[in-house]
């Protein structure tokens, strides 16, 4: 039974991921992203990582996708017409795709996958319980949490500086152009 569920939800996740990239409508892309995240979180549930599944829904599906939708609607993006691919792009992407398939093939053909019972038993189990997880965040992993706070500070400062309009228009703006390429 779990195997069938795994295949169903993997297929759903992959289909949604393809839809995310292939869709021309930005809102539809964002909604496919949402479906994709739901599929992944079901896979996490089947791995007994309930907390991770819950956080994925809460943070990504809840907050991030909603934010995407807000931005898409605020900026009123329609996707528009994509110019046809250049020849170089097609050649380069075919080479990259062929390399990727070759790499994946050799990985599956020659790599040995072993489910090491010992390693599985040793896997740290404290991320399953929310209480222990919270305690870890505020003790052992306190410093990384603080650092993430600084990351948010950089992001905030950057957004303020870059999006703020100059008070007065400069008379002699820089005459520099992005030309001069070889």
């Amino acid at each position: 039974m779990p195997a069938i569920l795994f295949y169903i939800f993997s297929a759903l996740t992959l289909a949604a991921a393809i839809g995310l990239v292939a869709n021309r409508n930005a809102v539809a892309s964002a909604l496919s992203f949402f479906v994709c995240l739901c599929g992944i979180s079901v896979l996490f549930v089947m791995l007994d990582a309930h907390l991770l599944a819950f956080l994925l829904i809460l943070v990504y599906a809840g907050a991030v996708v909603a934010l995407f939708l807000f931005i898409i609607m605020l900026l009123d993006m329609h996707g528009g017409k994509r110019p046809p691919f250049k020849k170089m792009t097609i050649v380069a992407s075919s080479i990259a795709g062929a390399l990727l398939i070759f790499g994946a093939f050799s990985f599956f053909a020659r790599g040995q996958f072993s489910t090491d019972e010992l390693a599985l038993a040793q896997a740290p189990a404290f991320f399953t319980d929310l209480k222990i997880y919270g305690a870890k965040l505020f003790t052992t992993y306190m410093l990384p949490v603080q650092l993430v706070g600084f990351l948010l500070l950089v992001g905030m400062l950057g957004v303020i500086v870059i999006s703020k309009k100059h008070e007065e228009k400069e008379p002699g703006d820089r005459i520099q152009e992005p030309g001069d390429k070889p």
Binding site: P144, L147, L151, L157, V161, I162, D173
Partner: peptide, 30 residues
């Protein structure tokens, strides 16, 4: 690995903003 990655990202995010600090230059935004 965790602290190294966060340090790496802290530096990178700051540098992205600094590279685009000249708002009157298109090259800077690019």
């Amino acid at each position: 690995l965790l602290i190294a990655f966060l340090g790496f990202e802290l530096a990178s995010l700051s540098l992205y903003v600094m590279a685009g600090f000249d708002k009157t230059s298109r090259a800077s935004a690019e």
